[in-house]
Design a binder for these strands. Structure first.
Lengths: 196, 196
DNA sequence: TCGTTCAGATCGAACGTTCGTTCGATAATA
DNA sequence: TATTATCGAACGAACGTTCGATCTGAACGA
């Protein structure tokens, strides 16, 4: 057999947990939304929190990819552009990832330390390394803390993604096209940290 | 009488709701934490959600202040510095505000539209106006969308505040001093949007 | 090819717990 | 004495989990 209900539960959990958090969704709603019986959650995941952890794990697996960008080496400015593009692409392929991310950042569950925190750490640390690299090359100003610059960059991009939907509704300002956004953020950030 | 339990409940609610969200806290825990009986929540606020709304309202009242910065006029660059300083100060005086802010942004409750959304709108709109002003003066580059620049700035600062605690634990990088942070972010952002 | 077998998949009722709210009683103040 | 503040027990509803029953489909022997 194919464990179709398992897949359906992961899908429903991904959407619902992202929308309302771990405590905002009941097992009954989860299983109803997955067209499964209420006992399937415990059967496959050992309980509600097990499903949450499974969803988290699946969503955050793709964070490993940041290291590819760094390993390929090259110009720090190009790597920063790579990071922005990668983040936007990730946002398109994992539409609920950012919600989990910020949701866990503000209201961390016990799985934060195991799954989310290492994922964040990897990204910020890699970004800071790229920036420190640019500093050593004399390409970036050295009077800025590399980790501060890394969180500034991550914050710019993540916050924009998060507020895109709200922005559209609030300001009638259609969220800028990807390419336009990349150009604006690259301009602001890289011009801001360049030396000279 | 003095309605001491009411105040205690607001205080407990501010901390607990920020830490775990609306659905992460029970009325029993709320009242226990406020040394009040379980019925006080309904007595004063008409129920758990009423307390949540009261806390939200109180926390977001200070967002009106952003307009003061703009009204005073002056150099757009100085106003941007004013915004960063104001945000940091707000973070010190309202230690739980940012958590509510991002928590509501990711998992909006029915009170989002009434309380949080207008507060965010005010800040981003005002920032965008300040930046557009700098553009008209020829001080800032005009090939960047003002709202994109505004969300970039807000994102940089807010994200840093949010991740400060996590950053400290994760990277051994003690969160930078306020003045140092202001200098770094000002340098990155204002240099990034300046004309020429 | 057909019936049997059996482990995995799925179900829904039932259980004990916890939830948020209500309500009558009591305490404190004016 | 009237009013406000506070309490804690009680209620029905909803929660997450458990469990025995049923269904499904592949494997196997005849």
């Amino acid at each position: 057999m194919k464990a179709e209900r398992r897949i359906a539960l992961i899908e429903a959990g991904t959407r619902l947990f992202a929308e309302r958090g771990l405590n905002g969704v009941s097992v009954r709603e989860l299983s109803r939304s997955a067209d499964a019986s209420i006992s399937m959650v415990s059967y496959y995941f050992g309980g509600k929190e097990g499903l949450y952890a499974a969803v988290l794990e699946e969503q955050f697996a793709c964070f490993d990819q940041i290291e590819e960008i760094r390993k390929q080496g090259g110009d720090p400015l190009a790597m920063i552009e790579g990071y922005i593009r990668w983040t936007i692409r990730r946002h398109r392929t994992h539409p609920y990832l950012l919600r989990f991310y910020t949701s866990e950042l503000t209201n961390p569950t016990p799985y934060f330390a195991k799954i989310v925190s290492p994922a964040i750490e990897k990204v910020i640390r890699t970004l800071a390394e790229i920036i420190a690299d640019g500093m050593r090359r004399g390409q970036f100003r050295t009077n800025i803390h590399a980790v501060s610059a890394a969180t500034a960059l991550a914050g710019m991009v993540s916050y924009h993604m998060l507020s895109t939907l709200a922005t559209q509704a609030l300001f009638g300002h259609a969220p800028v096209e990807d390419e336009s956004l990349i150009r604006d953020y690259l301009a602001i950030f890289t011009r801001g940290i360049q030396a000279g």
